[in-house]
Design a protein around this nucleic acid. Structure first.
Lengths: 192, 192
DNA sequence: AAGCCCATGTAACTGGTTACATGATTCT
DNA sequence: AGAATCATGTAACCAGTTACATGGGCTT
């Protein structure tokens, strides 16, 4: 079901074709919230049309169909948003990679955290320039929609990752120093 | 493949049975990184045994088998962690629900953000007490493993959600005030 | 000995991915 | 005219979920 609501929240911003929805999925949505490829999106738009949640408002060149969200679609989206959170499980391989870092030894951890931090910096730079671009291309008086919120989320999120990774390494260094201390104390005691 | 690495990173901390791995998945892993149920975990442990990544070190009561990570398993995990990040897509219905909020009208947004914020506070309280419990039950000299990192991540993450939601609402309020301003200016001009 | 939780197993189904396929339009 | 890209469609496959199933061991 999540796929429908992902589509509905994109269409709530503005009408779009299956093709362009697919491209919008490839941005912030697919890296943080929900991914879908065109092979899922086209059939789903059909089913949603049958269910009255979306509507074709234009048939353009190259057999393209532009869909809008209907009132029923907005109502369904609203109902879903207000429904009690179901505690549905997440799948995020990127987060898994981060959480797995403590399985490494300290030297590996230092190297990997350095690398991860660089990657995050690069990603952040990309996000920032994408946002600048977006702001340039967008009417400043328009109500901020999906994309603005998603970008802000992504920016805050990459900062979290960087800070967490830094914290993790510091924590592990602290522990390593601590247990070295304990070991040397033991040795002193042994020698006494 | 992510499932194997999720299992490996749990086993890197300590040996465990399929049953207990299942329960460990239900914690931080399943809400932020990766979810799996026992029906996936048992067969996967078999396959991983065949591939030499894990090993049965103990057969206990009630046919329970305790698995450890092998050297090959550690090597595989390490290789995966150091392999270039694949940009694999995420699935997180909870994030989707947040990002979809701007589809609502302002009144609904106010209500939902308030509710979401309460939920986050409750979740955070739960996490904090779980961490206290964990600290009490754990040898302070032990090297911090998966769970410590995951808890810290979760705590930082819920804070991000709360701050983002607050930011979003402020942004939307600002816009609503701004466009009201524009409307009234137009009216004054019309009247002049 | 009855009932409950521990511990594992597996089969049917569903949602999602990969891969193949094709027509229409624009660009050069 | 040919290449590139737009725009959609669909079928086979795979990973993951749901549901059913079962035996062992602890507790009362």
């Amino acid at each position: 079901m999540a796929l429908r609501y992902a589509i509905l929240s994109l269409l709530a911003d503005r009408p779009d074709t299956g093709y362009d929805l697919t491209k919008r999925f490839e941005g912030m949505l697919s890296s943080h919230a929900w991914h879908a490829s065109h092979s899922q999106i086209y059939p789903e738009l059909r089913r949603m049309t049958d269910d009255g949640l979306v509507e074709v408002i234009e048939e353009g060149a190259r057999r393209s169909r532009t869909y809008t969200i209907t009132d029923a679609g907005r109502a369904a989206l609203r109902e879903w948003l207000f429904s009690p959170p179901a505690g549905t499980p997440a799948r995020n391989e990127h987060v898994l990679r981060l959480l797995a870092i403590p399985a490494l030894d300290l030297a590996d951890m230092r190297e990997l955290v350095a690398r991860v931090t660089e990657d995050i910096d690069a990603l952040e730079a990309g996000l920032l320039s994408a946002r600048e671009q977006f702001v340039r291309d967008t009417d400043p008086d328009a109500r901020p929609g999906f994309a603005v919120g998603a970008m802000e989320f992504a920016l805050r999120y990459v900062a979290l990752e960087r800070e967490w990774a830094t914290w993790l390494l510091a924590e592990q260094e602290r522990h390593a120093a601590g247990s070295a201390q304990v070991r040397s104390t033991v040795q002193v005691n042994d020698g006494a």
